[in-house]
Design a protein around this nucleic acid. Sequence first.
DNA 1: TATTGTTATACTCTATAACTATA
DNA 2: TATAGTTATAGAGTATAACAATA
Lengths: 187, 187
Amino acid sequence: MSRPSAKTASPAKAAATKKTMRAGLSQAGPEMTKVDLDFLPSTIGYFLRRLQQAYKEHFLASTPGLDMAPKDVSALFVVARNAGISPSQFGSALGIDGAMASLQLAALERRGLLKREKSVIDGRSRIITLTQQGATMITKLRRTVASVDAQFTDGLDEKERAVLLGLLARLLAAHAGDLVMKGSARR
Amino acid sequence: MSRPSAKTASPAKAAATKKTMRAGLSQAGPEMTKVDLDFLPSTIGYFLRRLQQAYKEHFLASTPGLDMAPKDVSALFVVARNAGISPSQFGSALGIDGAMASLQLAALERRGLLKREKSVIDGRSRIITLTQQGATMITKLRRTVASVDAQFTDGLDEKERAVLLGLLARLLAAHAGDLVMKGSARR
DNA sequence: TATTGTTATACTCTATAACTATA
DNA sequence: TATAGTTATAGAGTATAACAATA
């Protein structure tokens, strides 16, 4: 699968979803013997890993030519709704550290979707805002993402989807601090 | 966070969980203004990404010295329960293609946890089995993983956990084929 | 010629540390 | 001296293609 490359900023190689019809596997036919997954199917970790992998595939396949990973989309949404946010706040909200935040913001800035300007109040800080192009992009993305995400849960009815979101949200709330904590402890 | 490196096979650098007390972020204090995540919290994709990230952290932090990612553990379980499985079947069961399967199996073989032998029935195929060391490892892992995974869902009661697993399983079943499909189409 | 598996290459992603500039 | 942010480096992860062996 061709992956999005926000960093190398290739705004044109878009619809080149190259398909290689061979990758080393060939079975998975209807006659294949069932593989025993042991107690993996009773663990949350197994499903989280497989499903995130599947989600990324689904998202990219559903947005040909967009050349953005779910992560980049999240970033844009956050900036869109929090104009003037700082890289620190941005990273903290998404559970990534300062260096990663810088890299991701730099990539989106290179694509012309947002800009970073020095704060006049505190010269160390930065003010992040969407560019006009970024704002346009967000408008499109809002519909697209909602649709693509809903499609991923096609097999669930409204209530089930709500229950799932609720449980996932509680899990994240219980663990969200862990990641940023790494870099936020004082010496 | 120091990450597991099954490939470079470092069976000894185990308990070196280096902690850098600074990574570029410092807020997240109680007085920080709340960041608006827009409609991200209503999407499955957002939670899958964040939670998988958190899970990996949780797993690694909970198994100091093990130097294995959840992915490697899954691989061992599959081989343990399916002695003599081929790389194809292995990869198909876990949603990865042949090349990736080879790499992962090679890494675990380098660590002495499993072995690959040429099949006498079909010389192209391989027979994967656990080594004695791998079998010992699995015994330990079975308890550890169950505990670590359960701990991750600490905030949920038994019923809620079961509901969550059920919904995740249905989602995966609906998307599991997508990944392997990439390499299984004939020309 | 097709299939199984491995290896090679290149590129992306991420962690860490070093660095700049402001305070 | 401490903080906000960036950049540099290295390592791990992954996609793809090329390859070797066997059927």
